[in-house]
Nucleic acid binder design. Sequence first.
DNA 1: CGCAGTATTGAAAAATATCAAGAGGGGTGG
DNA 2: CCACCCCTCTTGATATTTTTCAATACTGCG
Lengths: 261, 261
Amino acid sequence: MDQQDSCIVRLFSNYCALSEKDKELLFALEQSPTEVRAGETLWKECDRASEFCTIRRGWAYSYRNLGDGSRQILEIYLPGDIIGMREFAFSQRLSGVTMIDDGVICYFPHRRLLDIFRSSTTLTAVLFAIASRHQVLLTERLVNLARRSAYQRLAHFLYEMYERLGQTDSLSDGHFRLPLSQEQLGDALGLSSVHISRTFSTFREEGLVLRERHRICLVDPLKLAAVAEFDSRYLNDSLRPLFSDIEFKERGGEVNEVRTE
Amino acid sequence: MDQQDSCIVRLFSNYCALSEKDKELLFALEQSPTEVRAGETLWKECDRASEFCTIRRGWAYSYRNLGDGSRQILEIYLPGDIIGMREFAFSQRLSGVTMIDDGVICYFPHRRLLDIFRSSTTLTAVLFAIASRHQVLLTERLVNLARRSAYQRLAHFLYEMYERLGQTDSLSDGHFRLPLSQEQLGDALGLSSVHISRTFSTFREEGLVLRERHRICLVDPLKLAAVAEFDSRYLNDSLRPLFSDIEFKERGGEVNEVRTE
DNA sequence: CGCAGTATTGAAAAATATCAAGAGGGGTGG
DNA sequence: CCACCCCTCTTGATATTTTTCAATACTGCG
C-alpha cells in the first residue's frame, strides 16, 4: 500500500501540511490490518481498553446499552476515522463498537500515541484538533437530541451524513448509501423505529427525502439543511486555522505574541 | 498566589505526578486573572476564538441558542476547568459562555497550548486525557438526554453535580449549593422549566431529593444514583491509567511493547 | 410596599411511544 | 422454482410523556 492510499494520512492532511517524517509516523499506525465482517463487534463496553484503531474500509458505529434494554448509538465512523480515543484516559471501554459493513481496521496501542506526542508537535496539534472537532460533532448531536423534533432530528442526521460523505466522495446529487436499518436510526436519534418510519413517510409525502432500502436521496439538500437548522460551520470551519503558525515556528521562526489584555 | 493554590495545577495533578517544570508551565496559564460578575458573558457564539481560559473561582456554563428561541446549556464549568477547548480547531466560537457566580478567570491564547505540546509530553498527555474525559462526560450526557425520562435525567444531573463537587470539596451528607434556576436546569436537560418543577415535586413527595432555592439535599444519594442508572466509572476511572508508563519513559526507561496480535 | 423574576399547580394540547396486525423482500432448503 | 421464514418496514389505534398556556403564589430587593 502506498502512503497516498492511507486514509489516516489523508485525514490529517485536511488539517495541516505534513512533513515526510510526520507521514511516516502516521503511516505506522496503519500496520497490522485486520479484516472484519459486517456485524462483528470490535469490542464491548467494559472490555479492557489499551488500543485505538483506525478504520481503513467499511463503516462502524459505537453504542451504549442501557438498563432497560434500549441502546444509544453514539457515533457513526467512516473510513479514516480513529476509533476509541474516547477511552484514552480510561482503563475500560465505555462504549462498544461494531462494524456496519465488511471492512478493514488497524489496531495500535495507546502507547503509540505517546510516541507521536514525543516526536511531532505538528501531529500532536492535529490530533488535538481532531479531538476538538469530535467534541464539536458530539455537542451538535447533543443539541439535536435535546432540542429538536423527530422531524428535525432525522433531517439533521441525514444532512450530516451527506456532508461527511461529500468530504471524501463526491455525491452525485443528493444520493448516497446509508446502510442503517430504521431501528438503528432510531437508536442513534433517540426515537422509536416506528416513528422513524413515520417521519420518512412525511419526508416522502413532502418530496423532501426519498428512501429505498439503504439508499437515500435528498431531493432538496438545502431545504433539508434549513429545516434541520443545520450549522455547517461545525463541520467545515475546522481546516487549517492556526497551523500556519505551527509550521512557521517549526521552521525556527519567531512569533511575536500580540495579546490584547 | 502560591502554586499550591492553582486550580489548574491541582486539576492536572489528579492525572499524573508533575515535575516542577511542568507545574511552572501550567502555572503560567493562570496569569492575568480577570474579575467577572455573575451573569457576565465571556463570549458569544460566533465571536472570534483565539483564546482559552481557566476558571479559578466561580461557576460558568456554556450554551447554544437555537432558531426557535430556546437554548441548550452544554456544560457546567467548575473552578479548575479549562473553558473553550472545544474551539481549538475552529476560528469561531460555537457556543457562548456566561458566568453563574461572580468569579475569576484567566485567559490565555491558543498558542500557549502549542508551547505545552512542544515542551512537555507529560502535560500533553494529561491534556489529552482531560479532553478524552470531557468527551466521555459529553457522551454520558448525550445518552442521558436521548434515552432517559425527565425523572431520570434530573436525578442523573443532580448526582453528577454531587460527584463532581465531592471531588474537590467534601460535601456534608448530600447537601450542596446549586446556583441554577429551574429554567436553567430545563435548558440543560432539554425539558421545560414547568416539568422541572413537577419533577422536583415528585422527588420531594418520595423523600428522595429536597430543594430550597439554590440548596439541594440528596436524602439518599445511592438510591438517586440507582434510579438515574448512573455509571460512576465515567467520572472516576480516569485517574492515572497509563501514565506510570509516561513517567517511566521520561526518566529514560525502556518499555517493551507487548502487543497481542 | 410594590415589583420582577422565579416557582407551583391545573387543564388541555402536542409529540412520541407502545402494541398489534399485516405487507414486502430476500435468502434458504426442499 | 417454490415455499417458507425471518427480518424489516408500514400503518392504525391507543397510551404515555412532556409541553404549553394560564392563573396564582412566593421571594428577594429597591
